[in-house]
Amino acid sequence: GPGLTDLFKTEKAAVKKMAKAIMADPSKADDVYQKWADKGYTLTQLSDFLKSKTRGKYDRVYNGYMTYR
């Protein structure tokens, strides 16, 4: 089956995709945050998933999740 690194890459891609969806349409934020909360994502995990070469690119999404939880 898929190894943990593959799983991480898949999760990371999914999280980034959802983060971009929030940035494009902030009204989606609560739905996405709820999904992440259901998956039990911690802020540390989210921070790892949303690492970007562009500093602060996903800060709004991260901060939103922090206040959501």
Rank of each mutant, 00 (worst) to 15 (best):
G1P: 14
P2H: 13
G3F: 10
L4I: 14
L4H: 12
T5V: 12
T5M: 13
T5H: 11
D6F: 05
D6R: 04
L7G: 11
L7Y: 11
K9H: 08
T10V: 11
E11Y: 04
E11R: 06
K12D: 03
K12E: 07
A14L: 14
A14N: 11
V15D: 00
V15T: 03
K16L: 14
K17M: 08
K17Q: 10
M18K: 03
A19K: 00
K20L: 12
I22A: 07
I22H: 01
M23Y: 04
D25S: 04
P26R: 04
S27W: 07
S27I: 04
K28P: 01
K28Q: 09
K28E: 04
A29I: 03
D30Q: 12
D31M: 11
D31H: 10
D31V: 11
D31G: 09
D31P: 06
V32A: 06
Y33F: 08
Y33H: 02
Q34C: 07
Q34A: 13
Q34Y: 06
K35Y: 11
A37W: 15
D38S: 11
K39A: 13
G40M: 05
G40Y: 02
G40L: 04
G40Q: 04
G40H: 05
G40K: 05
G40W: 03
T42E: 04
T42P: 02
L43G: 08
L43T: 06
T44W: 09
T44R: 15
Q45W: 03
Q45G: 03
L46H: 00
S47V: 08
D48M: 15
F49I: 06
F49C: 05
L50T: 02
K51Y: 08
S52T: 11
S52I: 09
K53P: 09
K53F: 05
T54F: 09
R55N: 14
R55P: 15
R55W: 09
R55Y: 13
G56C: 07
K57M: 07
Y58W: 08
Y58S: 01
D59V: 07
D59P: 02
R60V: 13
V61D: 02
V61W: 01
V61R: 00
Y62M: 15
Y62C: 10
Y62H: 04
N63Y: 15
N63D: 08
Y65H: 00
M66S: 10
Y68A: 02
Y68R: 02
R69V: 15
R69I: 15
R69T: 14
R69W: 12
